[in-house]
């Protein structure tokens, strides 16, 4: 399997006034295509920061991050936004659905950034909602759905553009055990059946157990594999 994500000697330092807070120190990590990777670690270990850097919503202080051959650390903000829309699917802990839009419209959102025709968009949205088992709920607003269902809509939104990489930030963190299990099964299916590369941050060892590989972070450094 070829390497999809190459994190090379990445350092991230946050500045607060004159104070410098190092969050990641000289991190190097390779994620092969088709991988399902779990990042674990205590709070403040830097796992979400690493996820943000890989997904292109933050920039490293030094080092480089190559995703499918593109050095995203060199992209400007506008180019990075464009890149994210084509390459990254996000699954957040609190689903982050837009409450005034229906499930269908939430899933359709990333497609508004593509040149697909209305018909193609419709086909895609209906297809992914079927995959996550919510074809019959597409006209429901998020508040009419359970937490697990909302997260499934969020996963549908994440995969609707067929992104290179799926990013999950505590995707089961706000769910009960049963719903969490369903989400992990769905992510596993997306990885095995649809060959999606997934990087997921989690506190939950059980959730991490669904991944092929677990990376631990502590105090901004990778500690074990």
């Amino acid at each position: 399997m070829s390497t999809l994500v190459e994190v090379k000697s990445v350092t991230k330092v946050y500045k607060r006034d004159t104070l410098e807070i190092p969050v990641l120190q000289n991190i190097s990590l390779d994620v092969p295509e088709g991988e399902f990777l779990a990042l674990m670690g205590p709070s403040g270990s830097g796992k979400t920061t690493l996820l943000n850097l890989i997904s292109g919503i933050d920039q490293p202080t030094s080092g480089s991050i190559l995703v499918a051959g593109t050095d995203i650390a060199k992209l400007n903000e506008s180019a990075l936004a464009k890149w994210r829309s084509r390459n990254i699917g996000f699954v957040f802990q609190f689903y982050n659905l837009l409450p005034v839009l229906t499930a269908y419209e939430n899933v359709e959102l990333p497609l508004l950034l593509t040149n697909l025709s209305k018909k193609e968009k419709k086909e895609r949205v209906e297809a992914v909602l079927s995959v996550v088992g919510l074809a019959d709920r597409m006209d429901h607003s998020p508040r009419q759905l359970s937490g697990g269902q909302q997260q499934r809509v969020a996963i549908a939104r994440a995969v609707v553009t067929d992104p290179t990489l799926l990013i999950g930030d505590e995707p089961t963190g706000d769910l009960d055990r049963k719903s969490a299990e369903e989400i992990l099964t769905l992510l596993g299916r997306l990885n095995s059946e649809f060959k999606k590369t997934i990087i997921m941050v989690t506190h939950d060892p059980h959730a991490a157990g669904s991944a092929h590989k677990i990376q631990h972070l502590d105090k901004g450094e990778l500690t074990s594999q």
């Binding site: 997904s55 919503i57 903000e77 829309s85 084509r86 957040f92 982050n96 837009l98 990333p110």
Partner: peptide, 14 residues
């Protein structure tokens, strides 16, 4: 605020 952050993360420009 969260919706704005989400839209930006999804790739919507400023």
């Amino acid at each position: 605020t969260v919706e704005i952050g989400t839209l930006r993360a999804l790739g919507f420009q400023r």
